[in-house]
Amino acid sequence: MLRIECPCCGPRDHDEFRYGGDASVKRPAHDDPDPEAWYRYVYIRTNPAGPHREFWQHVTGCRQWLVVERDTRNHAIAAVDFARKLPARKSTLRKSPA
């Protein structure tokens, strides 16, 4: 088992989590019309043999999406943080007035 130190729940087995893949890919803004940007986001992965930033969701715990830094060569985990701290992509839409 990988042991993921959930910042909310403490160290837990990885099978409490749902894997979300590469966290370094940048999701285009929701209204970005560029097909190339979406193609790259959905399909292209650097897939490194080495340190990898990746999403995990603590589904049977706090349900937070996390960003885990893990080495794909030996599965050693270097860091875990909430995904929510990532800077958001600017939307071109006006924000809700509420």
Partner: peptide, 20 residues
């Protein structure tokens, strides 16, 4: 059911954290 919920949470946590 489970996939949709995780998907919604993913979008809110990672793509649109500005949405309340």
């Amino acid at each position: 059911a489970a996939d949709v919920l995780s998907r919604l949470e993913f979008l809110l946590d990672t793509a649109w954290p500005d949405l309340r």
